[in-house]
Simulated assay, not measured.
Amino acid sequence: MATGFNVPGMTAKDSKTVIKALQDRLNAYTDLHLTLKHVHWNVVGPTFIAVHEMIDPQVEAVRGFADETAERIATMGGTPVGTPGAMVKDRGWDEYSIGKDTAQAHLGALDLVYTGIIKSQREAIETVGELDPISEDLLVSQTSQLEQFHWFIRAHLESSSGQLSTAGSKTEAQAAAAAKKAK
């Protein structure tokens, strides 16, 4: 994980903890930007173009998060791993489960995807917080943007009374079905 040097002021043990948390984020960002591109390619229906065009800036931003995170790992003396096999082996979440479907279905599923990634972002922030304020700042900044993207998704799923069509859904398939039914 570490290559034998640390950033000044950090112990090897703390560096390894932070690098491990950042590698998990790198895996999450790689998976997320590929999932978002999958949605971009497979969304259909009357609101296709709006969702299609909303997703691309998210893809680009998340790709940038992956690059920033990999570079932070390298700066800390680690070796960022960006191969598909390593990501699949190490990830703690399931493959995105929705294929070609309506915009509402994909947005419903993405609501759960973003919920999961933001929750794990906050856990990573907690892990690195006192060990490395530089990595914490990076994660906080990225999380802020992820939360905004999540809001964009949820705006399509929210009723005028503030209820989410995906409320109570436990799986992407359930969320997709709930979002389609509510529309």
Rank of each mutant, 00 (worst) to 15 (best):
A2G: 07
T3G: 08
G4V: 07
F5V: 05
N6V: 15
P8C: 06
T11P: 12
D14F: 01
S15Y: 08
K16H: 10
K16T: 06
I19G: 03
Q23N: 07
Q23E: 06
L26D: 04
T35C: 14
H38C: 07
V39Y: 03
H40G: 04
H40E: 01
V43L: 01
V43N: 00
T47L: 02
T47E: 00
I49L: 03
I49P: 02
A50D: 02
P57K: 06
V59P: 05
A61K: 12
T69F: 03
A70M: 04
R72F: 10
I73E: 07
A74C: 11
A74M: 14
T75V: 09
V81E: 05
P84M: 12
G85H: 08
G85S: 08
A86T: 10
V88H: 12
D94R: 09
E95W: 12
K100N: 06
T102R: 01
T102Q: 00
A109P: 13
L112R: 06
Y114A: 00
Y114M: 14
K119A: 14
R122G: 06
R122H: 15
R122I: 12
A124S: 11
E126G: 04
E126V: 02
G129V: 01
G129I: 03
P133M: 07
D137N: 14
V140S: 04
S141T: 15
Q142E: 12
T143E: 11
S144W: 15
H150K: 08
F152C: 01
S165V: 02
S165D: 02
G168E: 08
E172H: 14
A176I: 05
A176L: 05
K180S: 15
K181R: 13
K181S: 14
A182D: 12
